[in-house]
Design a protein around this nucleic acid. Structure first.
Lengths: 350, 350
DNA sequence: ATTAGCACTCCCTTTGTTTGAGTGCTAACA
DNA sequence: TGTTAGCACTCAAACAAAGGGAGTGCTAAT
């Protein structure tokens, strides 16, 4: 453990933080001395607190107030002081699995359940698959001058696009085109497609090069859509439950971040690029990659959905959030999503 | 016009409202007497104001304060007092048409532009098409045990679903199935499909009835998805710009409504069912179908996207919103969407 | 019918006061 | 030497009193 702090300092620090998590009020020496197990006088505690303050674990909001944990204090709490009580959390499972066949809906549902369960704001990012490959492509005539292109990617992500054409196609021509596209593109990664391939395809397609390039545009479209990632959120208004977040300034910033989602996307990227501690990470205050969360703590978990598809679940709340409960809940949800994957549930929608 | 009020009362009422729209502060008799064209003393105005208050157009927040327009006052303002100044508003057009090919993106963009342009919260509902008919349906083999069903509906809405099958299919069988499905289902309305049709289809399909019923399930799915309507929002945090909305209670309710979208859906339904005044409607306070907006005004417009697809654009702001600007902007946007439709722009995405 | 004037009301801000929780420091104690 | 009791001090929050100011209603004069 950390040798910087004595055992007694551990105890006191933990007591301060736990008390503050509950009440949200600065905690003073007298309060502590009453609720401590090995009875200590308030004076003793004051001395220790002064030391802890010097070391940067706690601070006073103003001269004659009680102490509040600093970011460093929270960090220490999360890293070492937090007890690893295991508790059951079945409720979550049942709600999750109700009639949610499409991944999109599962994730939306997950965000909601999570928000309801924790009373914090939550976000869930849809899985992003790096190294996506094309699995199947087909053009079908819908109308005299309209063709629909359907593209299935690895992970069974389906995309489609209506293509307007000037010329009329015979069934035969379509069949040929389909053949050509499938033989050429199947199994290719999305990144590889846009290169010299277009030229070659156009040549082979001869007169129908316009359709080909439209199809390739559709493929390009897919990449683009893939880039701005889908993020589902819920419970943003929970911030109003915590006075320290619900002054206009902070509330506005946080809710704005939830609305725009740009900042959340950065958070997701950051989470996905770090690989630690069973995929659960805790950002306290400024540790998060966005400024709007400077008064918050953010806890994120990554989940896997098979075939290299990974997404992020996140909980945003006040710094005095109930880390234990949150981390336990996230772990449960992680397992839950794993389970869905393993069960071979329906694949992701377009 | 309304004979209940004298011309002078009109003037005074209008002056009170316009002044309040700008400042957000209760407006007193002295303030008015200074800024009125035919000079009137504050005493005279006081008398008139007392009358206006008796008639319910204005009220005092407390005994010795200036007057504030009541809901009835705003209503009167919107209905009869508001001048119909026409102004140009080109900016909007340009922003809108930038590279937004898919309707979904157009609408998201519209909500954003609108919010930025007005400084209020905005919502745009995706078009709902009553009486949707099936235009084209196709099954294609993707994998050994997977088939993708693609369904194109009137208005070129595309849906798809992966179907897991136990048995392997020959190309021939698939072709037959496709033929069967298309001849039977094409041109049918969604509502009509789920009835006795299933049984008949299963008979004809013989051994492959499982696939058929799965496909029909997919169709059912489409109906379901169509039911919970898509709503895009933007600028919810704009409510913080108006002190009368940014106390925790109201702000929380409004933002929650924007997050859940359930209430917005009701608003959309209400708007779509009423057909008046060029499709622009104004809800003041309690006139809106949801309680959370009781401190707001809501202005909505309906737009058409051809083939009977209609959606709603809405602006939510304080009661003292700039009705003129808002209604002008909405009209412009309405025309803009019409234009996109007429231009034969890309059809809606899946 | 309009207006000037006056007394009155009520909110908001300022100012001062009190209260209480909490601290740091020193001195006594085991 | 570590712990505790006690005291002086600080500061935020809560409260009360006071003044200013914006606004009203009413009455009497024009």
């Amino acid at each position: 453990m950390n040798t910087e702090l004595s055992d007694r300092q551990h105890m006191i620090l933990r007591a301060i933080i736990q008390n503050y998590l509950e009440t949200g009020e600065p905690v003073g020496s007298r309060t502590l001395s009453k609720s401590m197990e090995p009875k200590l006088s308030s004076a003793t505690i004051r001395n220790e607190m002064a030391d802890l303050e010097d070391m940067g674990y706690i601070f006073q909001p103003h001269t004659s107030a009680g102490r509040i944990p600093s970011d460093k204090g929270y960090r220490f709490y999360v890293d070492t002081l937090m007890a690893d009580k295991e508790q059951e959390l079945d409720e979550l499972k049942n709600v999750m699995l109700e009639k949610t066949d499409k991944v999109e809906r599962v994730l939306k549902q997950a965000a909601k359940v999570l928000a309801a369960n924790t009373n914090y704001a939550t976000m869930v990012s849809a899985p992003v698959n790096k190294r996506n490959t094309l699995k199947f492509i087909q053009l079908s005539q819908v109308d005299v001058e309209q063709i629909v292109a359907v593209i299935v990617m690895s992970g069974n992500v389906i995309k489609n696009k209506i293509i307007d054409v000037d010329e009329e196609f015979s069934n035969e021509t379509l069949l040929k085109l389909n053949m050509l596209l499938n033989t050429t593109l199947n199994g290719m990664s999305i990144e590889a497609i846009n290169l010299g391939l277009i030229a070659r395809l156009k040549e082979q397609a001869g007169i129908h090069s316009k359709v080909i390039s439209d199809v390739l545009d559709a493929v390009a479209d897919i990449i683009q859509v893939e880039e701005d990632m889908e993020i589902y959120t819920s419970g943003a208004t929970n911030v109003f439950k915590y006075p320290e977040l619900s002054d206009n300034q902070s509330a506005q910033e946080i809710i704005h971040a939830f609305e725009e989602k740009q900042q959340l996307a950065e958070l997701v990227s950051d989470t996905l690029s770090n690989e630690e501690s069973h995929g659960i990470q805790v950002y306290i205050g400024d540790e998060a990659p966005m400024k709007s969360m400077r008064d918050c703590s953010v806890v994120t978990a990554t989940y896997e959905l098979g075939e290299g598809m990974r997404g992020t679940i996140g909980i945003i709340g006040p710094k005095r959030m109930d880390y234990e409960h949150v981390m336990r809940t996230l772990k449960t949800l992680q397992n839950e999503l794993d389970e869905i994957n393993r069960k071979g549930n329906s694949p992701p929608p377009s």
